[in-house]
Computed example of a mutant assay.
Amino acid sequence: MSEQSDRGRAAHRSEWFGWLAAAAILCLTQAALAQQNGDSGPVIYAMEAPGVVRIHAVGVAEDGSMGGEDGTGFVISRSGYVLTASHVIPHDAKYKTLILGGTLGPATADAKPSRLELVKRSDSYDVALLRFVTPPPGLTVLPLRRSPAKVGELLFVLGYPLGLPDAHFLDGRLGAVAQDAITTNALVDKGNSGGPVVDARGCVIGIVYGAITSRQGQPVNGIKFAVPVLSISGILPPDVSSSAAQEPTRASEIIHVSDALSRTQEDHALADTVRSYHDVIPARDGFVIEAIEGVGHESLNPPRLQFPTPVISPDKKSMSFDYSLVSGPIYDQRRGWIDMTIGTRQRRISTAPDAALAGCE
Rank of each mutant, 00 (worst) to 15 (best):
D189E: 12
D189Q: 13
D189K: 10
G191F: 07
N192M: 10
N192C: 10
S193N: 05
G195I: 04
P196N: 07
V198K: 01
V198L: 08
A200D: 11
A200W: 13
A200Q: 10
R201H: 10
R201E: 10
R201D: 11
R201N: 08
R201V: 09
C203W: 02
C203M: 09
I205L: 12
G206M: 04
V208Q: 02
Y209D: 03
G210E: 02
G210Y: 04
A211S: 15
A211E: 04
A211I: 11
I212C: 01
T213P: 00
R215C: 14
R215S: 09
Q216H: 15
G217P: 00
G217D: 08
Q218K: 15
P219M: 11
N221P: 00
N221C: 01
N221D: 05
N221T: 09
G222E: 09
G222R: 13
I223A: 01
F225V: 06
F225I: 01
F225K: 00
A226C: 12
A226G: 02
A226S: 03
V227G: 01
P228A: 06
P228W: 05
L230G: 02
L230Q: 06
S231C: 04
I232P: 00
I232Q: 01
G234L: 10
G234S: 08
I235F: 06
L236G: 01
P237M: 02
D239N: 06
V240Q: 02
S241K: 09
S242T: 05
S242G: 05
S242R: 07
E247P: 01
P248S: 03
A251R: 08
A251D: 05
S252Y: 07
E253V: 14
I254E: 08
I254A: 07
H256P: 00
H256N: 09
V257F: 10
S258R: 15
S258H: 10
S258Q: 15
D259N: 06
L261C: 04
S262A: 14
R263E: 04
Q265L: 14
Q265S: 07
D267C: 05
H268V: 08
H268I: 05
H268Y: 10
L270G: 05
A271L: 12
D272N: 14
R275V: 12
R275K: 15
Y277E: 05
Y277R: 04
Y277A: 08
Y277P: 00
Y277K: 02
H278R: 09
D279M: 06
D279T: 03
V280E: 11
V280F: 04
I281F: 11
I281P: 00
P282G: 12
P282R: 12
A283H: 01
R284S: 05
G286R: 03
G286D: 03
G286I: 00
I289Y: 01
E290Y: 08
E293L: 15
V295F: 14
H297V: 12
H297T: 09
H297D: 04
E298C: 09
L300D: 06
L300R: 07
N301H: 04
P302C: 03
P303K: 13
P303Q: 14
R304H: 13
L305D: 04
Q306V: 12
Q306R: 15
P308K: 11
T309W: 13
T309K: 14
P310F: 10
P310R: 04
V311G: 08
D315Y: 13
K316P: 03
K316G: 02
K317N: 14
S318F: 09
S320Y: 05
D322H: 12
D322V: 06
D322K: 15
S324C: 14
S324N: 11
S324I: 01
S324G: 05
